[in-house]
């Protein structure tokens, strides 16, 4: 299966560089690019990408607003991977809050970047799990309302959510809980459904913001 990508960055050089790097992977194809958030929305509507690689700071609608808009249009597709020059905590957390599935550094090794895209598309694990977990844990307001704020989860689902929020992948959760991967996948899906989270990143945010996970 080929993944369809949309590149969004206000710098032509970043886009053309990324295009060459990503197109050299057999399972990735760049279906479009855009220089502003607003343009990204138009191009996304016309090209139906699987993953949008989104710059944060752009003129004429930044990446955070564009992500929010994309998510509002369709709860499932496309997934958004935020591309950032620096690990600017505040922007990154706001992008995740807006609905991005993960983030990657533009200066990352090309293989890491490609990996991040595949992980975001599959959704079976967090991108940069440790960084992401720490980012969410440190930014999520400590409301500490306890489990009550989350919809009823079964005991197993709560276990799974705790591990997801800990940054574990489905395979790792399967080992941890002595379950089959398929069972874990089912549990994760039902947790996401109950939390109305579009992916596990959003589930982790919900887990921290509700006080289910405490920092």
């Amino acid at each position: 299966m080929t993944l369809r990508l949309l590149l969004v960055d206000d710098d032509v050089l970043v886009r053309s560089g990324l295009r060459v790097i990503l197109e050299s992977e057999p399972d990735l194809t760049v279906v479009g690019d855009a220089g502003t958030g607003r343009e990204a929305l138009d191009v996304a509507a016309g090209t139906d990408p699987d993953v949008v690689l989104m710059d944060v700071r752009m003129p004429d609608m930044d990446g955070i607003a564009a992500t929010r808009e994309l998510v509002a249009r369709d709860a499932q597709r496309p997934r958004v991977l935020v591309l950032t020059t620096f690990e600017d905590d505040d922007y990154l957390f706001r992008s995740l809050q807006a609905g991005a599935s993960g983030f990657a550094l533009k200066r990352a090794d090309p293989d890491e970047l490609v990996d991040a895209i595949r992980v975001v598309a599959r959704g079976t694990s967090l991108v940069l799990p440790d960084l992401t977990r720490r980012l969410i844990a440190s930014h999520a307001p400590a409301r500490a309302r306890g489990d009550a704020a989350l919809p009823e989860l079964t005991g197993r689902e709560a276990d799974v959510l705790r591990l997801v929020a800990g940054g574990l992948s489905n395979a790792e959760i399967a080992t941890e809980l002595y379950l089959s991967r398929e069972t874990v996948k089912t549990h994760v899906s039902s947790v996401l459904l109950k939390l109305r989270a579009r992916d596990r990143t959003q589930a982790v945010i919900a887990a921290y913001e509700s006080g289910f996970m405490t920092t």
Binding site: L13, V14, G17, L18, I21, T85, F86, D88, K106, R107
Partner: peptide, 22 residues
């Protein structure tokens, strides 16, 4: 620094990576 040097270096890095691939 973030906006100018960081940005220029990022663009250069991606161009260099791409050039090596081509």
């Amino acid at each position: 620094l973030h906006d100018t040097i960081g940005h220029s270096l990022t663009a250069s890095l991606l161009q260099a990576t791409a050039a090596r691939r081509t």
